[in-house]
């Protein structure tokens, strides 16, 4: 079987798997961004309780493996009465894990805004909420974009693990094809290339574009 034949035969399956991977990535990214914003802001709180809660969350999710978290959410949570469908369990695990890493980026991004900006806003009597929303966050956002690009690639890679709880993503399809054909180089190799194209062909250019837009918008160009 030539590689062309291989693609002709298994292309549709691989395409389906890729769509699932993209869906997992988008949903997990949405969740990760939400969690990162909340936990990141909580980490800047003066309240010990709020700060502590966010710290525990971040340390637990960064201190253990994504795979362990995924299995725990899928196999153990049902024992607590919370059964998640495998597709849902997949992106929730990935989103919660990467959200913990993202929280530190949010915190770091906000702290990277120079002290003078906070002081100038204070001197203008701005309320903390307005200060954060109108002065600090727009600047923090731009600072955060490059590391978020890397984080989203990690997130895409992380979604490959959902195959292990039988979500039919790209990784899952590649394994299935390998099991049927024993054409390992073709099956796994093609999947690797598709992941690479998603990372460097979609995520990286998108983040660059976003950075360019924000830079122009913030007048730094």
């Amino acid at each position: 079987m030539t590689f062309i034949e291989f693609l002709k035969t298994y292309g549709p399956q691989l395409a389906n798997g890729s769509v699932t991977t993209v869906m997992q990535t988008l949903l997990a990214a949405g969740l990760a961004i939400l969690i990162a914003l909340i936990a990141g802001l909580m980490r800047l709180s003066h309240s010990r309780l709020i700060y502590g809660a966010a710290t525990v969350y971040i340390e637990v999710f960064r201190g253990t493996s994504l795979l362990v978290q995924l299995y725990w959410i899928f196999f153990v949570l049902p024992l607590f009465g919370l059964s998640l469908e495998k597709f849902t369990a997949g992106f929730i695990a990935v989103g919660m894990n990467l959200g913990a890493y993202g929280a530190e980026l949010v915190r770091g991004g906000i702290l990277s805004v120079p002290k003078g900006q906070w002081e100038a806003a204070t001197a203008l009597s701005m309320s903390p909420a307005k200060m954060m929303r109108r002065i600090i966050f727009p600047q923090a956002f731009l600072n955060m974009l490059p590391p978020w690009g890397n984080l989203l690639i990690e997130l895409l890679k992380g979604t490959a693990l959902v195959a292990l709880i039988s979500v039919a993503d790209l990784m899952f399809v590649a394994r299935k094809i390998n099991g049927v054909t024993y054409l390992s180089a073709q099956a796994f190799g093609t999947a690797l290339i598709i992941y690479y194209l998603m990372s460097r062909g979609l995520i990286t250019p998108f983040m660059r574009w976003l950075e360019g837009v924000m830079t122009r918008k913030l007048g730094k160009a």
Partner: peptide, 30 residues
Amino acid sequence: RLNIGMCFQHFNLFPHMTALENCIEAPIQV
């Protein structure tokens, strides 16, 4: 603080706003 204005050694202008936007931000928001 509304009674006091302050200018800093390093200006601390808001970099993401134009000169005009810098000057209308607090009057509108505050």
